[in-house]
Design a protein around this nucleic acid. Sequence first.
DNA 1: AGTTTAAATGTAAACGTTTACATTTTTAAA
DNA 2: TTTAAAAATGTAAACGTTTACATTTAAACT
Lengths: 340, 340
Amino acid sequence: MKKVDIKEVARKAGVSIATVSRAFNDSSRVKAPTKEKIQKISKELNYIPNPIARSLSKKSSETIGVVLPDLFGEFFMDIIHGIDEEAYKHNWFVILSSSHSKRNILETLVEFMGSGRVDGVILMAPQIDERINEIIKKSKRPVVLINAGDSVDINCGANFKINNFEGAYNITEHLIKTHNYKKIGFVSGPKDNYDALERAKGYYKAMHKNGLTVDESLVVPGNFLLESGYAGLKKLLNNKIVPDAVVMANDMMAVGAYQAAKELGYKIPDDIAVVGFDDIYLSQFLAPRLTTVHVPIQDLGRKAVLQLLEITMNKKKNHKPYIETLPTNLIIGGSCGCGR
Amino acid sequence: MKKVDIKEVARKAGVSIATVSRAFNDSSRVKAPTKEKIQKISKELNYIPNPIARSLSKKSSETIGVVLPDLFGEFFMDIIHGIDEEAYKHNWFVILSSSHSKRNILETLVEFMGSGRVDGVILMAPQIDERINEIIKKSKRPVVLINAGDSVDINCGANFKINNFEGAYNITEHLIKTHNYKKIGFVSGPKDNYDALERAKGYYKAMHKNGLTVDESLVVPGNFLLESGYAGLKKLLNNKIVPDAVVMANDMMAVGAYQAAKELGYKIPDDIAVVGFDDIYLSQFLAPRLTTVHVPIQDLGRKAVLQLLEITMNKKKNHKPYIETLPTNLIIGGSCGCGR
DNA sequence: AGTTTAAATGTAAACGTTTACATTTTTAAA
DNA sequence: TTTAAAAATGTAAACGTTTACATTTAAACT
């Protein structure tokens, strides 16, 4: 399989390399018979235009860089799935880089941006610090953010978010209005996490809107990990004011809560109702099925790609960043008390 | 942030571009003070050598292409995780492509191989057909296979597999020797899937080795999906010969089996023991925890990368393909009857 | 100091495309 | 036919590096 380049094809076809190139690109400018001959010969020789050379010349690579905080959990799986699927549909490639360390986000970003390696990047950084923001601002290439808070809207090409607030609000209100719970606890996520913060806000808002005061002791800190959900619920169940329901800031912690409840002999939802957030795969297998908030993660990935392509195509200069907040929806299981 | 290239740096540093290039590559050949000056200036100008141009010139991209059958389930997550982690460690990039269709595997492979886009590819194709095999053979670039059966050992650079046979053998034998089950059923995976076949073999072998005959009706077909596990167990429980234990060819089907058992009022493991294969995340949350076979998936990814890098570095001409079969290990839960 | 050798740097030709611009061929109009 | 306009093709200069090979500079011997 010796190397075959455009010259070879041109020679065999009796045309110039420009014609060959055109045959592969803007086909309208080359006569049909010529094009056919070139195609035939290319097939024979197994010729594929070298994408590297092409990128160098065109200054674009038809490749998207994807930078994710850490490659773990189905959340990221789904994002990647969405991205990959959409990118493939449009014949783009995806370069993946999960940021194995904080510092690495920067590095990768710089590497991506500075070079012709990618035409744009999809960045998911839970909280964007100043340096990252700086890079995005300076960058020639479009950046589409996923779930990145609002502080950075200005510099990016687009920012897709999940409506965490609404989701938390709705599920909390469900507990209040449908089930008439009064003492509703909350186990929060990491303090510096954008999603976590929004979810907390949603919980508070729903409580207040419905005339319920939130006792200090009803809110305990968590970190999105199973163990902290476990510890969180235990703490709540040993509280002076024992809640009759509890909102976990994500499903993993809800799983921990299930374990804690079981251990302490509390039945869900009879002794205590538990709800989560994320609708992870696992949640449907819990008994009773977890009531939670579904988050359209794959959509997030897909939309990010589409937006990035759009920006890349249109080359709009000083486009306003496009901001979209995707809605969530309530998944009713048995853990809130429904279907009792 | 206007473009800054090697010429710009060279000019500012008062040296030739060759020196700049050397300063960035084989540093030993440029005098220390010069190098420092170049580094300083590069930093000032935010210069990063254009990887595309570099690739074109060097005919290598420090990028690995990863082709996976489909981007779904944690199995693939783990593989990607392993690959990404190891690649990052060695400063390589990863281009991802899940093959959204059969035909696409070919396309992607050709695209990857023919061009300078990647230096090598990691391919996971459950069953490799002739055309794929052909491409691998012809290819200039190294291919490392993951879990691809043995038919293709000849052409690739390496082939990493999971010891499916051993895993299935061991878990079946565990049921026999530790628990003294005699009527052990089996729900198989897809007929054309390499892993599935090996697992089936392991089950049969363990049965025979321990003097148990396998009644036809004890083996029912499945397809690795939850539903088929559900259907599979139901079928077995309605059998003339009702098994006292059943080996599911993977964990997802075991989850289905749990649902079927529950529905029919069979208690696991008292009425029927169930074991799985894969040790998926979910399996630890089943009640009782699923007894299963752990598969070192991340290792698979990591090893594949390492091997690929090695091949790329050493440029061994006609190296024998490196073949390694990774061992599995038994995860004992309550579903087999242990800890009763 | 002069000569040889080694180290540092420079020059210019790749690498395989794309694409303005120039030229030729074809088509249409006069 | 001739000529103008349009379509097809060709020529050659980018794109930003790396790297043989050539040249200069420095170090090490006589």
